[in-house]
Simulated scan of single mutants.
Amino acid sequence: MSATTTAVPTANHNSNNTEQQHQLLPPTYIEGWSNLETVRAIPYRRLGRTDMVVSLLTLGAAHVSAKPSTAVHADGSVTGTEESVEAIHEAVRLGVNLIDTSPFYGQGLSEVVVGQIHDVEFGDIEIILSETLPTLARLREENKIRYIGITGYPLSVLKEIIERSTDVPVDTVLSYCRHTLFDDELCRYLPFFEVRRLFLLLALAIQSLPPN
């Protein structure tokens, strides 16, 4: 189970604000179940323009379906995920309330366990702009979802989508392996994300080798 995703706040926070945020309990804290000591030790930030308060330490779910015992059956049910589900529950109990998943992880099995997200480089930009984002906006109007985020490796593609999606504002952005010894391309894009008050997430923050 990896936990190497880093939330990168793109707004300045003074020491007083940081100290206060350390003391406040996140909305995901449950009295009698959450671990108060570890929750207080984790820093939290508001997720961009949203009202969500998330942990800067997040859980990368690339390996939640990596066990050989995990299987998808003809009726669509999935078995062998008990340990992964238990690990996710424990992470949340300890105070981690932000989880990264992708259809690329475990051939989609990761999403079955922890939710859904879409990497934009696997789709057509024109379709994302003309169909995907408007559909998500409609779901938001129907109160079926609250916020819209996009994910992908190419920062230029993420930037283009954000610039062109004038009718459907994007709330969060997630990329990966873009601030390492091998690749620090993210530094060039930070001003762009900051001026738009986007909450930026960096997965595989300590990746040792660039992706193939």
Rank of each mutant, 00 (worst) to 15 (best):
L204N: 02
M52G: 01
T18Q: 07
I99H: 04
E141H: 10
L36S: 04
Y189V: 05
S84D: 00
A62H: 10
T81G: 04
S110F: 10
G123P: 00
L202G: 01
I30W: 00
L186K: 05
T151E: 15
I148A: 10
L209A: 06
V114E: 01
I145A: 12
L57T: 12
T18W: 00
D51S: 04
N212E: 02
H89C: 09
G152V: 07
S110Y: 14
T10K: 00
P9M: 00
L94G: 03
I148P: 11
H13M: 11
L174N: 11
Y105F: 15
I128H: 06
T28R: 00
A66R: 11
P68W: 13
A203Y: 02
S34C: 02
D184Q: 15
T166K: 15
S69K: 15
V85S: 01
N212V: 06
A66Y: 14
Y176P: 10
E141P: 07
T18F: 00
V53W: 04
A61T: 15
L56A: 03
Y44M: 00
I117D: 09
A87L: 12
Y189S: 03
Y153F: 15
F199K: 02
D75C: 11
S165L: 14
G108H: 08
L204A: 12
A87N: 09
H89D: 13
A62T: 06
L186A: 08
L174H: 08
T70A: 13
G76M: 10
V173C: 09
T180H: 08
T38E: 03
L98I: 05
A7S: 07
E126P: 06
E121C: 04
V168T: 15
P134S: 11
Y147A: 10
V168P: 12
N143V: 01
W33M: 06
E142L: 15
R140I: 09
R164C: 09
L201V: 14
L109N: 04
V168N: 09
S130Y: 02
Y29H: 08
Y176T: 07
G152A: 09
I42D: 04
L201T: 07
P154S: 10
H22S: 01
E131T: 15
K159Y: 10
P154D: 11
L36V: 09
A66L: 02
H73D: 05
F104H: 09
L186F: 12
G95R: 08
V168R: 05
